[in-house]
Nucleic acid binder design. Structure first.
Length: 635
RNA sequence: CGCGGGGUGGAGCAGUGGUAGCUCGUCAGGCUCAUAACCUGAAGGUCGUGCGUUCGAAUCGUACCCCCGCAACCA
């Protein structure tokens, strides 16, 4: 039976364009891991959607003179197109404005209420007197009590940088109407995290080895500090309603005095999207125009298989600003349901990806349009560059100069060149066809090649080698089982790690995994040189037979590469496979493409016959001057 | 003393007690199948600073300096 893997990707706010930083922070890492699991034939469900409610949306709507719904529709549509373009392979990408989401949110709310984790409380909030409405902090401005600067936000004075507490702002007024604002008591529901603390402690301790160290430490820091109850309702119209009718059936002690204007706070509701989207996907027959939808043959349509089965694994991907919600709040919500829910096992958080050393900033026009860059340079180049710069441990940086260098010196020079030199060689010397019944796993390689491979750790190819022999590289060894033996044992430890996360590896470390792909390509280039295959073909029939075997070896490496690069560069993978005359990757459940490369039992079928399709360049070289001009255009 | 992360050759990063590594760049050489690509070799680091623990510290402790993130509805 296929393992169930649920990949929950943080829900992007639909108040602006998705830039390269979002891609690097969580969108692309999630997609890479999802594709990896699909290669292994796992039953993968990747869900996410647009986070549609809350103040950021209404702020953007005001700015554009639109209704919140219109802003949501506009950006949701744009995001859908962008994600399709980047090949982000969601099973369901939906939004939080759906009926299903609302239903599930209500269900969760009521369950937590009944279980005693939600309680009432009174807090103070800004209230516009003339307009008769509560205002979010963002909509209040006044004079800073410290530096007397006017027109400052209620939370921070931009002039002197001080943080302001509620009520400190002098002469606060509504940004919308100019109406005078005061602080007023307001009753809300709160989630009592204190009651969940010991369970959260257990949860963290159980996952110490599964999360990156800094992620765990940060979550641990929050928990040690002590979690306080947190408001889960607001006086804010652009939000999901409370299930008032249902609440009214409850005991009086659970009811607010006045439900008017009370809505569910976005932080509480958005994460429930993982659950609601799973359930929606299970019930859906097909996608709609405002979703990305995909279902493979044989995938389970019982949502509990992902959420309540012990052999399902849940991942969550997010940017660092979302850490506390995913590492503590959301697990807390699930615990409070007390209904056998699986908790996220891998909370995968990345830091931010900066742009030329500075934070991406829409307001300062310091941003790269994800769509434009992909159109110009190709999705896979961008995917590659982002993937190799993922801010897994510390902030990453996107620079145009580095982008060109990475593409030209790594992708083109190493991987692209390997493919091109191998395939054009086969074309010119063998008319694009190879066939060797003699191609067996026990072929003997040249001494030089041996030495090289031994040095580069490829010695794991060979059986019975001693440390001394390894150092000298002298032994005339036999090329043992297959290339994949080596793959399985050493190089692919990384790739294996990034999902299994065994041995306390605190991953996933996608950068390392990508490094492995490139390292494998580099090794093949060394092999090409060491075997001097271009000389072999000049040495009569024997030489040509040898060359054929060498090339078949290389072809098999290319096949491996096309598969292991797939999670990172799916388009390129398909392109390479087509050139090799192979089928492109199928990642249906149970297809187990991974096993065709990575298989401990070495049952893999080697390619012994080859008929090349038309050969083309895998990547085009970038013109540095043209690309560097991009930088100036954003200044 | 709010919480947390980081400071390792020109750049970007691995490395958490035992001869300082990788990718890119630089320099020299080789090769010519290949997108002036590939391969080999070399130069280049007192691992932020001081003190301490230890036979031994980039790695542990401590003090300090610098950069950054979060704490706010910025991914």
């Amino acid at each position: 039976m296929s393992k169930k893997v649920l990949i929950g990707v943080a829900w992007p706010y639909v108040n602006g364009d998705i830039h390269v930083g979002h891609l690097g922070g969580y969108l692309l890492p999630a997609d890479i891991v999802a594709r990896f699991h699909r290669l292994k034939g796992d039953d993968v469900l990747m869900v996410s959607g647009s986070d549609c409610y809350g103040t950021p949306i209404t702020v953007e709507a005001d700015k554009k003179g639109l209704k919140p719904e219109e802003v949501v529709d506009m950006y949701h549509k744009k995001d859908l197109e962008l994600f399709k373009m980047y090949g982000l392979d969601y099973n369901l990408y939906t939004k939080t404005t759906t009926q299903k989401h609302k239903e599930v949110v209500h269900e969760v709310f009521l369950k937590l209420l009944d279980n005693g984790y939600i309680e009432k409380g009174v807090m103070q909030q800004y209230y516009a007197i003339d307009d008769n409405q509560f205002l979010p902090d963002r909509y209040v401005e006044g004079t800073c009590p410290y530096c007397n600067a006017g027109n400052q936000r209620s939370d921070q004075c931009e002039s002197c940088g001080r943080w302001l507490k509620d009520g400190e702002l002098i002469d606060p007024v509504s940004k919308l109407t100019g109406s005078k604002v005061t602080l007023k008591d307001t009753e809300h529901y709160f989630l009592n995290f204190e009651k969940l603390e010991s369970q959260l402690r257990e949860y963290l301790d159980a996952n110490k080895e599964n999360w990156k160290k800094w992620v765990w430490n940060e979550a641990n820091g929050w928990l040690k500090e002590g979690l306080q109850r947190r408001a889960i309702t607001r006086d804010m119209d652009w939000s999901i309603d409370l299930p008032i009718e249902e609440i009214k059936k409850r005991d009086e002690s659970k009811q607010l005095k006045d439900f008017a204007g009370k809505h569910i706070y976005v932080w509480f509701e958005a994460v429930i999207g993982y659950l609601s989207a799973t359930r929606a996907w299970c019930e859906m027959e097909e996608g709609t125009s405002d979703t990305i939808f995909k279902r493979d043959e044989g995938q389970s349509r019982n949502w509990e298989d992902w959420w309540k089965s012990s052999d399902s694994v849940i991942y969550n991907f997010m940017g660092q600003d979302n850490l506390v919600f995913h590492a503590l709040m959301w697990p807390g919500q699930l615990m409070g349901l007390d209904d056998g829910y699986q908790l996220p096992k891998f909370v995968v958080v990345n830091k931010f990806l900066n742009y030329e050393g500075k934070k991406f900033s829409k307001s300062r026009n310091w941003t790269i349009d994800s769509k434009v860059i992909a159109e110009k340079y190709g999705v896979d180049l961008v995917r590659y560059y982002i993937a190799r710069n993922l801010p897994e441990n510390k902030e990453g940086n996107f620079t145009w100069e580095d982008f060109v260098a990475s593409v030209n010196n790594e992708l083109v020079a190493n991987l692209g060149n390997l493919v091109n030199r191998t395939l054009t060689f086969i074309n010119s010397k063998f008319n694009g066809e190879l066939e060797s019944e003699n191609f067996k796993p026990d072929m003997t390689l040249s001494q030089t090649a041996l030495k090289l491979m031994i040095k580069t750790k490829a010695f794991l190819f060979f059986e019975g080698i001693t440390e001394k022999e390894r150092e000298s590289g002298e032994k005339d060894m036999v090329y043992n089982p297959e290339i994949n033996n080596w793959l399985g044992s050493e190089q692919f430890e990384y790739l294996n790690r990034f999902t299994e996360l065994q041995n306390g590896s605190n991953g996933p470390w996608l950068v390392n995994a990508l490094d492995t792909v490139m390292g494998y390509s580099r090794l093949a280039n060394q092999y090409f040189d060491a075997t001097k295959v271009w000389e072999r073909v000049k040495e009569g029939k024997d030489g040509k037979d040898q060359a054929q075997e060498i090339l078949l070896n290389l072809v098999n490496v290319l096949y491996d590469l096309s598969i292991i690069m797939y999670p990172f560069m799916p388009e390129t993978s398909g392109k390479l496979l087509r050139m090799l005359g192979r089928e492109t990757i199928k990642t249906e459940m149970g297809s187990d493409m991974w096993k065709s490369v990575f298989d401990e039992d070495c049952t893999r079928q080697l390619i012994t016959h080859l008929k090349l399709s038309e050969v083309e360049l895998l990547f085009d070289k970038l013109d540095p001057e043209k690309v560097l001009a991009e930088k100036d255009s954003t200044d």
